[in-house]
Structures are given as structure tokens and as C-alpha cells.
């Protein structure tokens, strides 16, 4: 018989390292072609940090996104970054990039002011041009101003404020930019075979501010499917009957394929963090923190029996139904 069930779960995840102090840095150098080199020590594992950080740099500098070249992930090139973990890059490296871009922008405006016979405060940069707010006639391409000036550059560094717990109580205001999420899963279970079809997954996550919604959706969808594997398929240990039965290839360690995935309805909520750049919070990990309990619950709900260990495999379902 096929039985359907739904399950819900919620969760939270603190951005960056608990207690703070984990630093990231950025250097921005403007080029005489009007573009900018963004030097980072931050590694993009595929989640999209390089894209998001380039967006922030272009936004602050007032030049097109395509004009930013990122030179990252090489200790001989970029400045220090504490690493890609804890969903920290958009928030921590983001703040560093914003600071670097603002310093570079200020440096550029001060260099351009005498060239435009204006004061730096009345100048603005938009779409690659330096313009005077008071006098629209006075304008100059960024490229020209950079070419005519000494090095135009900016430095940025950011570490979430140190909030170490109190020494005696072990307590304190340790988190930064907590993100929130919830998911609802619907499954269909074949009670004869124990097979589960994950039909759909609805979820909403608080990104603080989604700097790039396409990339945030990518995190939500990828996190959902990784969590699906955790809830339904994947198990390295324990392995039985002996340790030699441990999975050794991708045909005995099964991760979800395109044939397994549910319909995913994802919503991005934006509750700004006072500390994040433009209010952004980390979204990389929470997207894999919420869906698996919802999927596990949907299975229990469908079969009317609680199974309190994941992955919930067909074998466990059939055994539970026999109890």
C-alpha cells in the first residue's frame, strides 16, 4: 500500500565562528582600464562567494560587475582569510570587501577632485563614470582618473566582534547574525517494499539580505538534496556485519541522483542582520540543517510508526512496520 505523510522542521544557524574574531581581508586596486582587481584570501568551493564579493565591490565602487577581476585563493596573492566554513564568507569577507571598496572609492574621488576642479564630497561614481552632483557637466571616466593618478587602492579587514563567553559562567553573547529556516516535506511510502518517494519539499530561509538570489536558491536546493541523502540514504558507519562491508564506491554509498529529487519550493526571507553587509547572513549551512528532520518526520507520519534514527532506509521501515 502507498501511504502519504508530511513532516515539518525548523532550525537556526549562527554565521561565522562562535565567539567572533575570525578575520578576513580584502585589497582592491583600480586599473587604468577602469576596472578593479579584487585580491582575496577566500576560497570559493562552488557556493558562489567570489560572485557575491565581486558584486559588493562593483556596487561600492560604482563600476560594472564585469569590470571586477578576482584574484583569490593563493597565499602569495590575496590577504588573509580565516577560511570557508561556518557560512562566513558573505558576512565576514563581505564586510572586508565593502570596507576595501569604500577606501578605494574615497581614494579615487580625492584623486579625481583636482582633475575635475571640484571637491571630493560632491563627486559620485556611477556606471564607471565620476560625476559631480552639483555640476553634471563635470565628469570623467573612472579609467581616465585612475590613469592620471598615483595608485588608487583600498584595504578592508573585518572580524566579527569578539564576544567570548564569561570566564566563570561559560556564557555570553557568542553568536553573530543567526539565520533562521523551516521546511515541510511530503513523502509517499510503499509499505510493501519500504521505498520512499520524496514528493515535495517547501522551505523558507532567512538570508538577512540575499545579495544574489540565484545563488541563494542554489544553496537551498543543494542543501535540500544533501539533507535528503542524509535522511534516506547515506550511512558510512556503523556497517554490518563486519567493518569490511563498509561502502567503498558510489555504487554502495548512494547519494541522491536527479531521479530522486523532490519538487522544491523555496522562499527567501530577508530579516537584516545589523552586522552583515547590507544585512546579509550566512546561508550555506542552514540550508542543510533543516530539511532532514522534516523528511524523517514525513516518513514516520506516513507509516504511523516512529523511527528515531537516520538514514531511514527501506529496511528500517519494513522492520518498524513489523514491530
Amino acid at each position: 500500500m502507498k501511504k502519504r505523510g508530511i513532516g515539518i522542521a525548523a532550525g537556526m544557524y549562527g554565521t561565522a565562528v562562535m565567539g567572533g574574531g575570525d578575520k578576513s581581508m580584502a585589497v582592491i586596486e583600480l586599473r587604468p582600464d577602469g576596472g578593479a582587481d579584487l585580491l582575496l584570501g577566500s576560497v570559493d568551493l562552488g557556493q558562489g562567494s567570489t560572485t557575491v564579493l565581486a558584486q559588493m565591490a562593483a556596487h561600492e565602487l560604482g563600476i560594472p560587475y564585469d569590470c571586477i577581476s578576482v584574484h583569490a585563493m593563493d597565499t602569495a596573492v590575496g590577504p588573509f582569510c580565516a577560511g570557508t566554513w561556518g557560512s562566513r564568507l558573505t558576512y565576514v569577507a563581505g564586510n572586508a570587501v565593502v570596507a576595501a571598496a569604500r577606501e578605494a572609492r574615497q581614494c579615487l574621488l580625492e584623486a579625481a577632485a583636482p582633475l575635475l576642479k571640484a571637491s571630493a564630497v560632491e563627486l559620485d561614481i556611477s556606471e564607471g563614470k565620476i560625476v559631480s552632483r552639483g555640476n553634471p557637466e563635470a565628469s570623467m571616466p573612472v579609467a581616465e582618473a585612475v590613469f592620471k593618478s598615483p595608485l588608487i587602492a583600498g584595504r578592508g579587514s573585518y572580524a566579527p566582534p569578539m564576544r567570548l563567553p564569561d570566564f566563570t559562567t561559560g556564557k555570553g553573547n557568542c553568536f553573530h547574525a543567526l539565520a533562521w529556516g523551516a521546511a515541510i516535506a511530503e513523502v509517499e511510502v510503499d509499505t510493501e517494499t519500504g521505498e520512499v518517494d520524496l514528493l515535495r519539499l517547501a522551505c523558507a530561509y532567512d538570508a538577512g539580505r540575499a545579495i544574489n538570489p540565484m545563488l541563494v536558491e542554489g544553496q537551498i536546493q543543494g542543501g535540500a538534496v544533501m539533507a535528503q541523502g542524509q535522511a534516506m540514504l547515506e550511512q558510512l558507519y556503523p556497517c554490518y556485519p563486519t567493518v569490511d562491508s563498509q561502502p567503498q564506491t558510489f555504487h554502495d554509498y548512494i547519494i541522491p541522483t536527479a531521479m530522486d529529487i523532490p519538487g522544491i519550493e523555496c522562499r527567501i526571507h530577508e530579516c537584516p542582520s545589523p552586522e552583515g553587509p547590507y544585512g546579509a547572513k550566512g546561508i550555506g549551512e542552514i540550508t542543510a540543517v533543516v530539511p532532514h528532520p522534516a523528511i524523517a518526520e514525513a516518513i514516520c507520519n506516513a507509516i504511523g510508526v516512529r523511527i528515531d534514527e537516520i538514514p531511514i532506509t527501506p529496511e528500517k521501515i519494513l522492520r518498524a512496520l513489523q514491530r
Partner: peptide, 19 residues
């Protein structure tokens, strides 16, 4: 499209945007 990539594993995207 799903069937065409049934033998191509991806750990990042959840396949949705690939389809």
C-alpha cells in the same frame, strides 16, 4: 532531462538548476 543525467552525480546543486 532527469533521466539523461541519472548517472551524473552532483553534490552541490540539488540538480534543479541543471534541469
Amino acid at each position: 532531462a532527469r533521466a539523461a543525467i541519472a548517472g551524473n552525480l552532483c553534490r552541490c546543486t540539488g540538480y534543479v538548476k541543471i534541469i
